[in-house]
């Protein structure tokens, strides 16, 4: 295996770190010097070798540690993975999608042998060797969504499509930006987005829904979303808000570069074959400000974005209380020079 996996934690002593290569391939989400909501959806095609867009399900140096962190979260709170009864078929569709993609994209790490419904799956980084019968849950240690979700970075929501709407009827969610699967499960697209300010009036969700309900098999899409997190914590759930909340108030001008992280979600959307459901993988990438500014273009641009962001959005994204310290820090890396188009480093 060419990839070396970091020995690191996402809680407690927070030893999470990005290698120089991981910084370079970080999915910086701003393609211009300002930010407003948009339906910034594009085809999820292999793009740019080495980038996080190269493969359908990106596996990086954080893979093993992220899966260990997910196991801790699920042991603490098994309700982070739930599936309404009618979504089991979609769970199998999703398991198939991941196993097929990973074994094709990373043959050195993952192998899938199929003989009719008799399947054999090998996941070398996690030391898993599993024979099972496809569509027979009793042959796996847990349901198909949880089984493959424990081996796939990112949160995953399975959306049922009916009545011209999408319904969040299953998911495995342990690295969420402050929303609760246990509370939102069963909601439709407009209901689970109800707390998002401004975007409803802009018609963003109507347009996004129309697009998503027409996503076709074999033509996945993706978009980037972002927020801010203090410490490299994956589990910023509302369930544990009273446990991680105090950390948000530990930012000082001295430590902001090391402790404040930009959190980017690579969201993708796939139509699933047998269930006609959508799977919505939400992959989280974290980068500290001090690592981010090592790419001069990103330092300049991120300063301008956060400086000019409407207060309401800073409030919604939960970093209003630290915003001035963040902007002051980033200002030191903004010499006013022009920035090039696109998200990639110069």
């Amino acid at each position: 295996m060419t990839l070396r996996f970091n020995d690191e934690t996402f809680r407690g002593d927070y030893t999470y770190h990005n290698s120089a290569a991981a910084v370079r391939r970080f999915p910086f989400p701003f393609d211009q010097d300002s930010y407003m909501y948009s339906v910034n959806i594009e085809p999820h095609r292999p793009t740019r070798a080495g980038s996080v867009f190269e493969h359908r399900f990106d596996v990086d140096e954080h893979y093993v540690a992220e899966m260990q962190d997910r196991a801790i979260t699920l042991a603490d709170d098994p309700l982070r993975c739930q599936s309404l009864p009618h979504m089991e078929l979609a769970g199998w569709d999703f398991l198939e999608l991941v196993m097929v993609c990973k074994s094709e994209d990373y043959p050195d790490m993952f192998t899938l042998h199929r003989d009719g419904d008799r399947w054999h799956w090998i996941n070398r980084p996690l030391g898993i060797d599993q024979r099972f019968t496809f569509m027979d849950t009793s042959t796996l240690p847990c349901g198909p969504l949880e089984y493959i979700g424990r081996q796939t970075q990112g949160d995953h929501a399975l959306l049922d499509q009916r009545e011209g709407n999408l319904w969040m009827d299953a998911g495995i969610v342990t690295s969420q930006a402050d929303w609760s699967l246990d509370f939102n499960i069963g909601m439709n697209f407009f209901e689970w987005h109800a707390p998002v300010p401004k975007a409803h009036e802009l018609g963003i969700f109507q347009r996004a829904l129309k697009f998503l309900t027409n996503v076709q098999q074999g033509k996945p899409s993706r978009r980037l979303n972002w927020t801010m997190t203090v410490n490299p914590r994956l589990d910023t759930s509302p369930e544990n808000y009273h446990k991680w909340g105090p950390e948000k108030r530990t930012i000082t001008p001295e430590n902001v570069g090391a402790k404040q992280y930009l959190r980017v979600e690579l969201q993708s959307f796939y139509r699933l074959p047998r269930s006609n459901a959508l799977v919505f993988p939400i992959r989280c990438y974290l980068i500290s400000l001090e690592d981010l500014v090592t790419v001069p273009k990103w330092g300049r641009r991120f300063h301008r974005v956060l400086r000019d962001l409407p207060d309401e959005l800073a409030e919604y994204k939960g970093f209003a209380v630290n915003r001035s310290m963040i902007v002051d820090y980033l200002a030191r890396f903004d010499d006013g020079a022009e920035t090039s188009a696109g998200i990639f480093p110069d």
Binding site: M87, R162, Q216, N276
Partner: peptide, 12 residues
């Protein structure tokens, strides 16, 4: 073309 479904079952 690839299959698309505008008349799916409500599996609930």
């Amino acid at each position: 073309g690839a299959p698309a479904n505008l008349f799916g079952l409500d599996l609930r």
